[in-house]
Design a protein around this nucleic acid. Structure first.
Length: 160
DNA sequence: GCCAACGTTGGC
DNA sequence: GCCAACGTTGGC
């Protein structure tokens, strides 16, 4: 069964345009250094799952597009790389601490579905956005999205 | 740049 | 295991 997710990134670091520009449109979703998010990447995110690409800490905060998970969780190589900002001295090859997944570019939405817009829509009773993790546990960088939330936001992205 | 919310560290 | 101090995230 296909599962849905929302992955956050600061576009100054890595944006949906950067993913689209990758050779064959495949990128490594690495650098996740939060245990709750790590557990999802390691145990729950599967090949074939769909994910929103969320832009945080930028001018247009919101959902910029979507992608497909093409490789489930595996140890994040950056944790072993002393030259990387994501290096972790407490991690070893035998006991990796952090995980990443590979994603492939699917679509950049015609417009970004803004966080402010989702917050406004969430004020409506029983609207799909109201239950989003994004609005209730906002700091989590890898978070689940329900099927109805996914469909609602994809439809919203087609409307101006 | 500010600050609220949350996560992590480390002494005891 | 508790909790104070500190660090980080991320919206505004």
């Amino acid at each position: 069964m296909t599962q849905y997710w929302l992955f956050k990134s600061e576009p100054d670091e890595y944006s949906i345009d950067d993913l689209a520009a990758e050779p064959s449109g495949v990128g490594v979703w690495d650098g996740i250094r939060n245990y709750q998010a790590r557990n999802l990447l390691r145990d729950k995110v599967k090949q074939g799952d769909k994910a929103f690409f969320y832009h945080s800490s930028c001018k247009q905060v919101g959902i910029a597009g979507r992608m497909t998970v093409v490789r489930a969780g595996y140890p994040d190589p950056a944790q072993f790389d002393q030259g990387s900002g994501y290096y972790d001295a407490k991690a070893s090859m035998n006991t990796p601490r952090w995980y990443c997944v590979d994603v492939s570019f699917e679509q950049k939405f015609a417009r970004t579905v803004l966080l402010s817009e989702l917050k406004e829509l969430a004020a409506e009773i029983e609207s799909p956005p109201a239950e989003m993790v994004l609005l209730n546990q906002s700091r989590l960088s890898i978070q689940p999205v329900t099927g109805p939330q996914w469909a609602y936001i994809v439809a919203l992205a087609q409307n101006s």
